[in-house]
Computed example of a mutant assay.
Amino acid sequence: MASSSTTDHSTTKKPSKIKAVIKGLTIPVILLVLCEILVRQGVIEPYLLPAPSSLWQSFLELSEGELWQHIWTSTWRVFLGFFIGSGLALIFALFVGLNKQAEAFLEPSFSAIKSIPSLAWIPLLLLWLGIDESSKITLIAIGAFFPTYTNTVAAIQGVDRKLIEVAQVYRLKYFRQIREIILPAASPGTLTGLRNSLSLAWMFMIAAELIAATQGIGYLLSDGRETSRPDIVIIAIILLAVLGKISDSIMKYIEQYLLRWRDVVK
């Protein structure tokens, strides 16, 4: 009986996923068809917006060149900057979230730095680090730092005090309280921050590559603009959307896997 109920559950789950995919693709498909019609009818000039059917040929031409190198370059920049920025954010967030004195010293400075736009960092980083990889990675790390830091601090400070009181009743040592009570309770907020950090890392990567780069998707955007090739610009934008969606889906899967205990609690 148990196996049959499991089979029924899996079979009902598949059609729902298919319906969700179809619903998600509806608007993009409508927009593509509409764009194709408007360009073919001459309502929109091809030099402003190429027909979607012509983008495939442009993609094939780019793929025969250095397109995959551009994708690889941008991807490793994003993930390296993300790991550096979010890693530092977790360290500072634990320090600030668990220590009121540290919060009093660090929180005002971090709040001020967080409000600085990404483009404002570029001239300073170029002066300090030059136009090589270090300036780009640093900018991406700055972008990835604050979502993880902010969410983790809020999650730690939002842990139910009753849980800590129970730990004190059982006389758990301080570091054991952190490891077994505070960190698990704060993990949903931390993982949300990490997911937001990865999304922001892609945005900061474009800011870095638009200014000073000879490779990467941001460089493709800049090159398409300078050579009046809207097809290259649109392909670069689509690549960003696809890569961002893939990385976000990976983070979402990791988040669901690490937080699977919530389903057991429910």
Score class of each variant (00 low, 15 high):
V153D: 01
C35E: 15
P52H: 05
G85Q: 11
T227C: 08
T192S: 07
Y257Q: 08
S63H: 09
L200W: 01
W128F: 06
S10L: 08
T26G: 14
S228E: 05
T12M: 04
I30R: 02
S111E: 10
N151H: 08
A102K: 14
E61S: 12
G65L: 14
L55W: 05
A236M: 07
I27L: 15
K173R: 14
P117A: 11
S228G: 10
I91F: 03
I250D: 07
Q177R: 07
S187Q: 09
E66R: 15
L119M: 12
L198W: 00
I235A: 12
K245W: 12
E209L: 13
A141S: 08
F145R: 03
T11L: 10
K245G: 07
F105H: 10
T12R: 06
I237G: 10
F79A: 01
K245E: 09
S109G: 10
L124V: 14
M205W: 04
V233K: 12
W202Q: 02
A93H: 10
T152Q: 00
S134E: 02
V21D: 06
P15V: 01
S10V: 06
A154N: 06
A207G: 13
E36G: 02
E226I: 07
G130P: 05
R179H: 09
I250V: 04
V264M: 04
S74A: 13
G244D: 05
L48T: 04
L38G: 00
L62V: 09
F82L: 04
R225K: 14
S228F: 14
D223T: 10
F110V: 03
V29W: 12
T152W: 01
R171W: 10
L198H: 00
I182F: 06
T26F: 12
G65E: 13
I246L: 14
I142P: 15
F110C: 01
L31F: 11
K19A: 12
T26N: 04
D8R: 11
V153L: 02
I238F: 14
I131R: 15
L139A: 15
T73P: 15
G24H: 10
S134I: 03
V33H: 08
L220C: 06
E209G: 13
A93C: 02
I246K: 05
P230H: 11
N196G: 11
L94M: 13
P123M: 04
R195F: 05
G216N: 09
W202A: 05
I182S: 13
S54K: 06
I37K: 01
P52K: 13
P184S: 11
A112F: 07
L200C: 02
F146M: 01
P123D: 06
A154T: 04
P28R: 10
L67Q: 00
L240P: 07
S247Q: 10
I217M: 15
Q256C: 12
I122G: 04
A112D: 14
W72V: 15
N196Y: 08
F82D: 02
Q177E: 07
D160M: 08
D160A: 05
P147W: 01
S197Y: 00
V33M: 05
S74F: 07
L183W: 06
A186F: 05
S197I: 00
S197L: 02
I156C: 03
A155G: 00
I84M: 13
D223C: 02
L240R: 05
I254E: 07
M251H: 01
G143N: 06
A186D: 09
L88E: 13
V78P: 08
R260Y: 09
M251K: 01
